[in-house]
Amino acid sequence: MGELSSIWRESSHRYRLVGHKCGNCGTVYFPPRDICIKCHRESIGKISECNLSGKGEIVSFTIVHDVPPAFARQRPYAMALIKLEEGPILTAQIVDSDMDEIEIGRKVSAVFRRIREDGKSGLIQYGYKFVLDG
């Protein structure tokens, strides 16, 4: 049940890329943080939610060949570090692409996909993945 509650608690971030913004220095965080790591106590009470655009650029990536059983239908797949327009860097799967299309510097956009499912009777977890632009 612990995992179920964390999936539920994090759904707005995973579904809609809701981050946090420091009202003191303007730094955007994803995943969200309650305290700005630059402003520390100065940021207390000044952190607000912000919707991220889902637009970004690949800064690094790896091709996964030795996949977990749940990803057998998607082998091989790419995991990338993506720098969002607003600043944060996150890790996400790149989908709907041939592996040789994926390059550092390529622009990407967030899409809504299944992340994993807990067997045939358990919860389906949804969230962000990315596709190459253009």
Partner: peptide, 13 residues
């Protein structure tokens, strides 16, 4: 549909 697509993901897009 891709293996990670279903009616929920298609509806959201």
């Amino acid at each position: 549909p891709s293996p990670d697509e279903d009616v929920a993901t298609i509806s959201v897009e």
